[in-house]
Design a protein around this nucleic acid. Structure first.
Lengths: 377, 377
DNA sequence: TTTAGCACTCTAAACCCAAGAGTGCTAATC
DNA sequence: GATTAGCACTCTTGGGTTTAGAGTGCTAAA
């Protein structure tokens, strides 16, 4: 089950052609467009063999061939040559992403916009997972009697806040007292490790009657936990309606409906294994293809093709994602979703550059933070 | 150019029928479905007259009739009977909107979701316009050297905040000093009245060297101004793809593209005149129709039909919006956008109830606030 | 192993046709 | 004078047929 050089060339040509035309590709047009030095009949035989091995499919008996999931997989893993972006393209992306320089969610938002803009497909971006960040500060600011603002500062330099109700009789200084007790007892812990019990224990040092403490303590707990809520940014979902695979409105609607379910997509993204998986899960690929894939520099992105996405409504789509970092830990994911016959090379080079730019910006955002951390250790 | 009783009945029947079937309606099917006591021929004559007067249109010479913008307009203004929601429907909406009780943007978000859910169309909701609210408090919280959180509290009980950079050498107490100077100088002013000059004047009382002050002062100014940023929430845009008028994918894409332009839509919504306009702008409507419209209880919603929306891409849509209040002032808008042949009655009753529920929730949210205001005056 | 040749398949577009729903008009009727 | 039955006419829609064209698989020769 191995692919010789000619089969590879043919497979690549078929995928390239189908990506650009969306029409099943036949042997004759293939030789004329890509000037192979063989006759259509030979190509025909090779294509029949590729179909036999599962790389190509025939929509109906007497039509040209179309790549299968497996065909795209081989294309992406070993046939595709990813070019770097031109200087102009890089500058353009940097320009789009230059906007809100002071806020993390703004950066992520812009990364998503840049991706959908530059690729012409749909983009997704997930806010960072903060469950492993540790709490650095917690402040409670009196807004008016009965209402307060809980501000949670995390190690990654992220600040979250939330408006809460507190007992009317508490005054500002009591709130400050509670906040310092909580900060004292909780700072340094990761969000995951903070529980209602640890919060309660910390709060007890505030030396206030339980009945006053309880409500504030609970609200603080919720505020802390809520700091880890995942947010999903999506842009350009409607872009895919331009492509022939979505000419059927019902299909388009199913697809849009799925993408509108933020929670579902956020969950899917957040549960993806990280990039090391690329190249695995494909026992049927021949050894040479795998070896070649491994010889390249390690992939920094994950590609899911068609059925690999495991969602019926997206079976005609492909999905390319990568991660971004905060400090040294993988924080969140950005990605592009497009038709299965998407321009993989273009998307990969764009997503790689956006990832890189986003990482830089996050580093800069947290730079004062980093300096502090460095001096402390 | 007046409509007698029979013409009205026929017009209403045509609109009702077209709304439910999306098929041009003919004289014969009309008499059989709505048992008029006249023959199809008579109805035919009346329909010809209605077409003559511009209430109906014929897609092609030998087909049934379809309502024109003017036809829908007359239907909405004087023929439509809006029923209240059933108890169950009310309960259901309340349930959807019960979620985030502590935060304004959450309430608005949920109102939008409730609307698209209940109507099956697309919904829009605009965050409140706060330019007439006055500033009550401004706090600056030190996060770490060089970074601070500016918290702005407005009269309406709204709290906004923003992370900013400040000179590294400023310590927490200096920031507090600046904040109190600003609060002293600015509280009670409306957002609209606050300018860079007023902020600078206020800041000068902080008794700190100008070079330190300037950056903080500027960031505070931006934070205050930014509190008035309009946010748009939209849900269910893809719902419209279910309807036959959007079977053409290109049309669907144009429509989705427009809705994806948040800024455009937010601008459009925020510039709408308030509800008093309903019933105007229709010089061609006969006097009786107008008189009847005026006899009803004043409309609390605005309907824009087809071309009235003034956006080419939405010419096959209609738009129903209403406002919600914070305290006594009109604050923002919520609305539903659907096909021109939308179920106007159903949408109006739903939007009215959502408006009412939202107003109640906002009142409750600000209740502690209100109490304070009341005692002060 | 490659390829020319050929019969075969299948789609998509073009075309025609008939059915059906609806219209407008006229003349008869209430 | 308003209503309606009757009728000829229009236009869309759906089904069926036909044809051109692109592509295939197979065989036999190079």
């Amino acid at each position: 089950m191995s692919l010789d050089e000619r089969k590879k060339n043919i497979l690549k040509a078929v995928v390239d052609d189908y990506i650009s035309t969306a029409e099943p590709v036949g042997s004759k047009s293939l030789v004329s467009k890509y000037h192979f030095n063989v006759s259509p009949a030979t190509v025909r035989n090779e294509m029949a063999a590729l179909e036999e091995q599962g790389y190509l499919e025939q929509p109906h008996t007497s039509s040209g061939r179309v790549p299968s999931d497996k065909g795209y997989r081989a294309y992406v893993d070993s046939l595709l040559k990813v070019d770097d972006l031109t200087q102009a393209e890089c500058d353009n992306i940097r320009k789009i992403m230059k906007g809100s320089i002071d806020e993390l969610s703004g950066l992520i938002r812009q990364a998503s916009i840049a991706l959908s803009d530059k690729t012409g497909y749909a983009s997704l971006a997930l806010s960072p997972k903060l469950s492993q960040s540790h709490l650095k500060q917690i402040k409670i600011l009196m807004i008016e009697p009965g209402r307060a603002l809980v501000v949670v500062v995390l190690s990654a330099g992220v600040v979250k806040d939330r408006l809460v109700r507190v007992p009317n009789i508490l005054d500002a200084s009591q709130l400050v007292q509670i906040a310092s007790a909580l900060e004292e007892g909780l700072s340094g812990m990761t969000l995951d490790d903070i529980t209602l019990v640890t919060v309660a224990t910390a709060a007890r040092h505030a030396q206030l009657p339980d009945n006053l403490l309880n409500q504030v303590m609970y609200e603080a707990y919720v505020s802390i936990k809520q700091a880890d809520n995942l947010e999903l940014y999506a842009d350009g979902a409607q872009n895919l309606l331009s492509y022939p695979e979505f000419q059927d409105v019902h299909k388009a609607k199913d697809y849009l409906d799925i993408l509108a379910r933020d929670g579902l997509i956020a969950g899917y993204l957040s549960e993806m294994k990280d990039e090391s998986e690329a190249g695995q899960d494909m026992p049927e690929l021949d050894e040479q293809v795998i070896r070649e894939a491994q010889e390249r520099k390690p992939l920094s992105y994950v590609v899911r093709i068609g059925q690999e996405i495991m969602m019926e409504e997206l079976k005609d789509c492909s999905f390319i994602t990568t991660t971004y970092k905060m400090g040294d830990i993988v924080a969140g994911r950005i990605g592009v979703i497009g038709p299965r016959r998407m321009a993989y090379g273009k998307v990969i080079s764009n997503i790689s550059f956006v990832k890189q730019t986003l990482n830089e910006q996050i580093r800069r955002l947290a730079s004062s933070e980093d300096r502090m951390e460095a001096t402390r250790q």
